[in-house]
Design a protein around this nucleic acid. Sequence first.
DNA 1: AAGAGGATGAACT
DNA 2: GTTCATCCTCTTG
Length: 204
Amino acid sequence: MILPQEAYLGEDVVRIARELLGKFLVTEFDGILTSGMIVETEAYRGPDDKACHAYNHRRTARTEVMYGEGGHAYVYLCYGIHHLFNVVTGPKDQAHAVLIRALEPVEHTGQMLLRRRMDKLASRLTAGPGALTEALGIRTGHSGLPLFDPDSPIRIEDRKIHIPLESIQSGTRVGVQYAGTCALRPWRFCIKGSAWVSKAKGAE
DNA sequence: AAGAGGATGAACT
DNA sequence: GTTCATCCTCTTG
């Protein structure tokens, strides 16, 4: 079943980042359905998190969607090349988001390989935030789309896979050294032992 | 109006 | 381990 919007409205983005592990990110563009199970996430918490684009209530055209209600996509361009996909969480005006960092490919992996210009299945296909958006066909233009609407081209589904706390590995977030002490917060989560987690440098 | 830099990934040495 | 692709967004003047 599709994950209801209520699942995104809680105030604790760190908790939601953990709860998204084991859920399924699905895209359906031009009738082509591709999906993967979320195996790695990171929490970004609005005003007090220097690593977050909405740090100190910073409000710009780009981050506006983060200030909306939870359950929508926040997609932005990184390094001019990579489209990074986030899930907005919390009630309106609370700018929190969860970055999806890696997936285990599930449906229509052939199409995903095609989009990545790869010829055989490897973790490289969807390990890393820029890689998985390319595999699923997600681009910045999709920012703002709802994830809880069955008619939306991007959705998150709950297929009743429960990841117990002891199967979750936490660590520091990747690529946020500029954030000072905030960079030390253990807000990166992945499924312990998964072969599909990103091999990011600087991670614990 | 201009310039710096980024929540990365791939291809190098 | 290092380099570099590539472009939008934000800051500064």
